[in-house]
Simulated scan of single mutants.
Amino acid sequence: MNTSAPAAPQWVQVLLSVLGVLGGAGGLAAIAAVVVQRGKFKADAADTLTDAALTLVQPLRTRVAELEEAALVTRAQLDATREQVQQLRATVWDLRRTLDRWREAILAQDATLRRVRAMVQAGEDDPGRR
C-alpha cells in the first residue's frame, strides 16, 4: 500500500521557501533595514522633487516679471499715444473748420482779395489758433 504524507497548503510552502531564502536572521535584518530606511527614501524623493520644481519655476517667475514690466511700459505708451491722437484729432477738426471758412470766403459772390487776406490775417493773429 502506498502511504504518502498529506500535502501542505500552497501558501505554507511559499512561506517556508521565503524564510529559507532569506536565510533566517540575516534576511530579516535586511528587511528591517529597508523598512527603517523607507522614511529617508521618501524624504530624499521629496527633496529631489522640490529642487526640480524650483529649478523649473524660477525661470518662469523671472519671465513673468519681465512680461509684467513690459506690459506696464506698453500701457504707458498706449496712454501717451491715445492722448496724442486726441490732440491731433482736435487740431485736424480745427484746421478743417478754418479751411471751410476760407473756402466760403473765397467762393462768396462779393469776395475780394483784400477781404480774404484780412480774414486769413485775423485767423493768424488769433491767440487761440496757436
Rank of each mutant, 00 (worst) to 15 (best):
A71F: 01
V35F: 03
D51V: 08
G27R: 03
L95D: 11
G24S: 02
L54R: 06
Q87R: 08
A45Y: 02
R61M: 10
V12D: 02
Q13G: 13
R101T: 13
Q37D: 06
G20F: 09
Q86C: 04
L16F: 07
D125I: 10
V18R: 13
Q121E: 13
G26K: 15
A46P: 01
L49K: 05
P6G: 06
V35Y: 02
V14Y: 14
A30D: 15
V64R: 05
A108Q: 05
A70G: 03
I31H: 14
L107I: 04
D79S: 13
V34I: 10
E104G: 05
A46G: 04
Q121A: 15
L95T: 08
A30H: 09
A105V: 04
G39N: 02
R89C: 14
D110S: 06
T74A: 03
L54I: 00
R61S: 04
L16M: 06
T3M: 07
Q77P: 03
V85G: 00
D51C: 09
R103E: 05
L67Q: 08
V57T: 11
R82H: 03
P6E: 08
G39T: 03
G20E: 03
I106G: 09
Q84P: 04
A105Q: 06
R129H: 04
E68A: 12
L72H: 09
L113N: 09
S17G: 14
V64H: 03
E124P: 00
V57S: 08
A105M: 07
A5D: 00
R101W: 07
G23P: 10
V14A: 15
